[in-house]
Design a protein around this nucleic acid. Structure first.
Lengths: 190, 190
DNA sequence: TCGATGAGTTCAGTATACTGAACGCAGTTT
DNA sequence: AAACTGCGTTCAGTATACTGAACTCATCGA
């Protein structure tokens, strides 16, 4: 963070995206309509407490109002010989699936970057026996269910499981979540 | 974020970790000593602008002062059959290396979670020809150099490269950085 | 044409964030 | 001891964040 935050712009953007009036947001946040108006037009330096109340009213993280807009995810390939970086992107039901692994390794394992919109879920059928999945949480929080077991994960957490039973990844929160996923196919399959 | 932030505690923790006096931090941040004292003891609701100035003075992200303490990274294993999750942890030169991949796949590939303290660097000799590395940035920003090529990466970015030449990962910033790394050994080696 | 409703803005008053200076309290020095 | 230095706290004054009410300007029916 090298520039002062642009709180007003962020609040206005989210509020109009949610189609809320100042009156409604005022009620939901407990911050006066007058103050909201002045904050949105950068006429005041709000206190942290006030911005926090607004974040609650908007159902977003405090940081979402203080940070600049989320940058897009990028894929680099630093070696000419690694040129076959797959950039496939699929979008469905609030989930963006980005294939990271090159085609050359599609038989042994696959790597994905999964972006979950708020409340999106990725439900999977059982894979081939012996298949394993490895998750690393890059952003937000997700809930993972494998058979009868469940885990709550947050940024930096790592999870591994056999996925020859039903398994699912949920984003319960109001924030987007990003998950790095490695699928390793059973050597038996090959 | 479901509870109001504990700014005072965070500032005090970082300030004393840095061994700074209120006078010094006041000079470096442009916030009066009196105000710093009152913020640290939760006697006031500081404005965002003030907290931002303090963050600059401490050389940390604004969010680091507003969020609760950074939770430790956790490793889960959701399936009894995947019980051999390695939890090896090595620390050297400001870098924590956590082995994520189970021993059963050590021949084909390895997965790590790397935590870089501010300004830490991980410099590697060339690996066996054909070896590839795949990086996903979980937190912070890092600079990666492979041979003559360099890339700046931030959270959510993904990078792949052949690592049969010299390669290095730097954390130039004042923030810790977390990187997920997959090393895939050349099939020829096996 | 004229209220009436509902949007965002402006106004005047009060609460409080913020400052520089004074203060109290250690540990050192003389 | 007394004087000094450097730490964090408290004080009194000023700037301003914040509020409820008044205001403006649309859009909508009668």
């Amino acid at each position: 963070m090298h520039t002062p935050p642009m709180i007003g712009k962020n609040i206005q953007r989210i509020r109009s995206a949610r189609k809320l009036t100042l009156n409604v947001l005022s009620e939901r946040s407990g911050v006066s309509k007058a103050m909201l108006s002045q904050i949105e037009s950068d006429k005041v330096n709000p206190t942290v407490a006030t911005v926090w109340k607004i974040a609650r009213g908007l159902n977003v993280e405090l940081n979402d109002l203080l940070e600049a807009d989320d940058e897009p995810k990028r894929i680099f390939s630093l070696n000419p010989a690694a040129e076959d970086a797959a950039k496939l992107e699929k979008k469905q039901d609030g989930i963006t699936i980005r294939v990271l692994s090159p085609l050359s390794m599609v038989e042994e394992l696959e790597m994905y970057l999964l972006t979950f919109e708020p409340h999106a879920a990725l439900v999977s059928e059982p894979h081939f026996p012996g298949t394993q999945e490895y998750l690393t949480i890059v952003k937000g929080t997700v809930k993972v269910t494998v058979g009868d077991n469940t885990a709550e994960l947050k940024r930096g957490d790592f999870l591994m499981y056999h996925c020859d039973t039903d398994h699912a990844i949920y984003n319960d929160s109001n924030q987007p979540a990003i998950v790095h996923m490695v699928v390793r196919f059973s050597p038996d399959r090959r």
